[in-house]
Write a protein that binds this DNA or RNA. Sequence first.
DNA 1: CTGTTAGCGCTTTCAC
DNA 2: GTGAAAGCGCTAACAG
Lengths: 346, 346
Amino acid sequence: MTSSDRYGPTRMKDVASAAGVSMTTVSLVLNDKAVGIPAETKQRVLDAAAALGYRPNALAANLRTRTSDTIGFVSDTIATTPYAGAMIQGAQDAAWKAGKLILTINTNGDPAVEAYALNALLGRQVEGIVYAAMYHQMIEVPAAAKEVPLVLLDARSADSEIPSVVPDERGGAYEATSHLISHGHKRIGFLKNTASVPAANERLEGYREALEANAIAFDGELVVAGDSGLAGGYAAAMALLVEPHRPTGLFCFNDAMAAGAARAAHELNLRIPDDLSLVGFDNLELVAPFTNPPLTTMQLPHYEMGVWAVEQLINRIDGEDFSVFHQRMQCPLVERASVGPPPTRT
Amino acid sequence: MTSSDRYGPTRMKDVASAAGVSMTTVSLVLNDKAVGIPAETKQRVLDAAAALGYRPNALAANLRTRTSDTIGFVSDTIATTPYAGAMIQGAQDAAWKAGKLILTINTNGDPAVEAYALNALLGRQVEGIVYAAMYHQMIEVPAAAKEVPLVLLDARSADSEIPSVVPDERGGAYEATSHLISHGHKRIGFLKNTASVPAANERLEGYREALEANAIAFDGELVVAGDSGLAGGYAAAMALLVEPHRPTGLFCFNDAMAAGAARAAHELNLRIPDDLSLVGFDNLELVAPFTNPPLTTMQLPHYEMGVWAVEQLINRIDGEDFSVFHQRMQCPLVERASVGPPPTRT
DNA sequence: CTGTTAGCGCTTTCAC
DNA sequence: GTGAAAGCGCTAACAG
């Protein structure tokens, strides 16, 4: 009130003079570094700060300490996929728990934007960067991103030095197929998608391995490709189901294809799961529970991957735990009602 | 190379001495404020900066200029809704276009986290805050958020001074109902949800108004409530469709309920759209196109709302355009295949 | 046209 | 135990 009547928010200096102490003392108290300061002084500082509505300017502190408590989150596309939310949420929650804030940016896949965005992030002194793709893929990381600790989320890089986390597609497919087998199925088809993304190849592998592990011969005729949407699933399933010696169970590349398969089955008057069992992948929250019957499927661990990515990043920022580089996150089975024992007569 | 061999990133001072000029000159050149500086000098600065890989420390600049080119994005929950992505994307794109970065935080609806989060944001000198809810609702905004320009996204506040943007629910419902009417329907049911959220009430209003505008008497018997999921839609539709004088068209609170209605129709051997026309709401990208037949529905303008919110925020930060306070964003009709003329005999 | 100088608000030796 | 003073990296008067 006395000397420093001025515009703008209260500064530490104001608190100091209000409490009748120096800035050093205020800083010490407010940052819990007040080792030997009497409780009485401490309280006076706290009171003054509260009375003046003091809020430290983090920018100034960060400039001085050369930290920022901020991490960058770069993603290629965020909206076009329903999965994005959970990943971001996981990342946020983990960051928050570590007292960091997240600066988000999305590049829409444009390399020019990407370069610019990285610069903006780095200029703001982010302590690390999470580089997220919105579906499991191989990406090339701009050199600039490597200036700070970096982890890849739902993506991998040819540069194996960059830590990454992706879903365990192979394991998920293995479990999906095994689930069908455990119900007694022996003729199990795989509806794969045509695109050559890691998910496609690895899910096919998992399918094969599960078959092998159970001494069921792999039959190339039982895997048929289609586009990864409902229409593709419909067509692929149709091709398989009209055959005389049709499969009794279908493992589908994703839930959309599974929904297509269900449609094909209905048209052929095959009941699910009595005549045909179905397992999907993705566990789309808006479709899997609502197919008829509700779809048994594999859950993509997006939230967990988001958490892992920033926890790992923070470990690296803190200089700890450089052990695990490439994490494959387990995809849990979500049992609903589309799987049963195979029909007694095929 | 000469005097300042030191650790850490290059600073402006380094560029200055490398180019043989003062920091002022460097600053001027790099910020495009070099009014009368000879091209030759300018080039020398640019070259030196490039050679040294200089990247300005935005924190330092921001401290000095008392700006931050950063806006805060606070949301209650991000993952649990499929809509969130588009809103964030819109916000991001608009922010990026204005040269701002977004600091995101989500509170999971916890007021304690919220208070803390707001402090963190404000401490980092965000220039404004977008406060987003993940579905259209009334919220109470913490006082701290009002210290900087603020706009509400997909939410409204009792405090009418706070600008906000929400979907035009009433208008959407009006158009949905009118669409049915324009196809010749006269007996149109409304499947409403039981929760008393703004969306529910306003969609009911829009439905009534469209009826009135077309001289169709409102019939309370034709509006039946259910929970807002597939099961609720199924039950509500069932109640209506078993009646002898059943409606020929149904406007549903949302796509999930519409999917339930479709299920009920199938069970009753009513074909869509021959025997029954259906209009949904939300245009869920993963369900609406894939119902059988594909669902005609109203699109929620999430991306556009995100854009509007940050554009508005930036206007306010810049001290311009304080005119529009409450925006209701139009919900466009997405025509697919679930609407046709009513059957000739009811 | 360009350099000198004084801070932005904070943390942190180093004295007393 | 607490204060004075230096300085994080930058911008912006103000001279010259």
